[in-house]
């Protein structure tokens, strides 16, 4: 088993409830994400939030990102401050970018929001563009990019903004096998770029999400109770299923996937 320790709490969701009129969407959501420390590795955190379509994943996604206020409850970050819009890097399902800005200018706008990059925005953008194979696309408009290029541009934009958290809404949706591998590698690359980097992946693609995660949160409804809640939290490190290549063939992995499916 890979040795690691879980240290301080990076994010804590406490008693999150969301309802519209009388309809309860989310109920008693509680979980926390801790900093995982591994020897000799800059190991970030990758948490998958899995649930059926229409269960309330997007609502929880928006609450976590600070774009929507819950009816009650709070999402707190490691500095004990309640999350607000702008604290998290958010990558929407369709990788939205400002259509009127070139990729370079979009990235520059994000970099300018990051005080740490002051004076070295241009170099940092070029470095990221080179790392993410997007150097030739910097002068293009979003309409001229392929889906994969848009996704990478969106990720760089949110990384340049400097947030430790990156929330991704259905990042594997509609990708072919080849692109799926590229995207998972890209996310792993991001997760190991910094010790505090935390990826929260909201998805209904169980196999791909679990394969790159260290923790799985299952969002589902419980018998007789309205609204969705976190039904189960699976620690993949404990099961020795985290940070491994070709994990998908392992028996324990297949069993875990089946366990998640049964839980949905």
């Amino acid at each position: 088993m890979t040795t690691c320790i879980k240290k301080e709490i990076l994010l804590k969701a406490e008693n999150i409830n969301l309802s519209y009129d009388d309809k309860i969407i989310l109920r008693d959501i509680n979980f926390c994400i801790k900093d995982i420390v591994r020897m000799d590795v800059k190991q970030g955190q990758v948490v998958s939030l899995i649930g059926r379509s229409g269960i309330g994943k997007t609502q929880l996604f928006k609450i976590l990102s600070g774009l929507q206020k819950p009816t009650s409850g709070t999402v707190k970050l490691h500095n004990n401050q309640t999350v607000k819009a702008g604290d998290m890097g958010v990558i929407f399902q369709n990788y939205y970018l400002f259509e009127w800005r070139t990729v370079y200018y979009s990235l520059l706008l994000a970099a300018k929001q990051n005080d740490v990059l002051k004076g070295k925005e241009k170099e940092t953008i070029e470095q990221y563009a080179a790392d993410f194979n997007l150097k030739d696309e910097l002068k293009k408009y979003p309409q001229q990019l392929s889906g994969g290029q848009r996704q990478r541009a969106s990720i760089i934009q949110q990384l340049l903004k400097g947030s430790d958290f990156l929330l991704l809404d259905e990042p594997f949706s509609g990708l072919d096998v080849c692109m799926l591998d590229k995207v998972t590698n890209l996310l792993l690359q991001v997760s190991t770029s910094d010790e505090l980097k935390t990826l929260i992946i909201v998805s209904h693609d169980i196999i791909t999400s679990v394969a790159i995660s260290d923790t799985v949160l299952i969002l589902g409804s419980e018998n007789g109770k309205p609204g969705a809640t976190i039904k189960k939290e699976i620690d993949l490190i404990e099961r020795d299923l985290a940070w491994k290549k070709d994990i998908k063939q392992e028996k324990a992995f297949i069993e875990t996937v089946e366990e998640i499916k049964d839980c949905l």
Partner: peptide, 25 residues
């Protein structure tokens, strides 16, 4: 709506959002 949401995720305040999405955009 995503244009406003993108501004929010980038940490823009309301005036910056007005400038970026409506005046420039």
């Amino acid at each position: 709506k995503q244009e406003y949401e993108l501004c929010k995720t980038l940490g823009y305040n309301n005036w910056q959002t007005l400038y970026e999405v409506i005046i420039v955009g």
